[in-house]
């Protein structure tokens, strides 16, 4: 069994870092979206729900293409980031984070939304009659009840980001320690006919993904997709 080179370890660490940062951001950004989707009676619910679900069906190349153009110097996002003085996002780690947040959004929002919906109107009404204000209700009643949904969301968001390839290939530029994640490193090894190295990384990914899903599906009483 070949050992991982330093460059490959760097890719593993980078992938872990990208997935962690993305998951944390998604939990923060995704929770209000999920809450709104679970509670609203607005006629926009369908539209927002569809937009959130888009990355499930869109080819990563569509996302990668739009991001590359939008975040470039002539795109709206690129103009904005330059105005902020932080430069351009393509070929940077923050750029990958932005891409991954879009790419994994439904994997976090949907389980949380399902968990919120399962809490039910009645529970909120009871809390209100006990004079809990909405924030109290959310933090002391809804969050604890929705915890399994959050765990599912975090695991799926993390795992899906680890499995990202097309978007990174299009906006990453393959820079060691900055944008060369494991999936891209595997692709490079295969292209360069370094099958032994590709096998180590690919086997690792397979094992990781299986263990994650096993953990997810073996959790007691947890339904992944409601």
């Amino acid at each position: 069994m070949a050992a991982l080179s330093n460059a490959d370890w760097a890719a593993v660490w980078l992938t872990f870092k990208l997935a962690s940062v993305t998951t944390v951001i998604l939990l923060i950004v995704g929770t209000p979206i999920a809450w709104w989707l679970a509670r609203t009676r607005s006629r926009w619910k369908g539209v927002v729900g569809a937009v959130v679900a888009l990355p499930l069906v869109l080819p990563p190349t569509v996302l990668g293409f739009y991001l590359l153009v939008a975040m470039g110097p002539y795109g709206p996002v690129g103009q904005f980031t330059q105005w902020l003085g932080i430069g351009l996002l393509p070929f940077t780690f923050p750029g990958l984070v932005v891409g991954s947040v879009f790419y994994s959004l439904p994997f976090v929002v949907q389980p949380v939304q399902n968990a919120f919906e399962a809490v039910g109107e009645r529970m909120l009404e009871v809390a209100a009659t006990l004079r809990a204000n909405p924030w109290d209700t959310f933090f002391t009643v809804v969050l604890p009840l929705a915890k399994p949904g959050f765990i599912t969301a975090a695991i799926l968001g993390f795992a899906h980001t680890v499995g990202e390839f097309g978007v990174v290939l299009m906006i990453g530029g393959n820079i060691p320690e900055k944008t060369r994640v494991v999936s891209v490193a595997i692709y490079d090894h295969v292209e360069a006919l370094e099958y032994a190295e590709a096998h180590v990384l690919a086997g690792g990914m397979l094992l990781f993904s299986f263990v994650v899903l096993l953990a997810l599906y073996s959790r007691k009483g947890a339904s992944v997709w409601k």
């Binding site: 975040m71 470039g72 110097p73 002539y74 393509p90 530029g173 393959n174 820079i175």
Partner: peptide
């Protein structure tokens, strides 16, 4: 400073889109 395209066409595209 160096970013890598998967092939020479993607390399040109990185410059064309203004990203390099």
């Amino acid at each position: 400073k160096i970013v890598q395209g998967e092939n020479i066409a993607q390399t040109a595209q990185f410059v064309q889109t203004g990203n390099a």
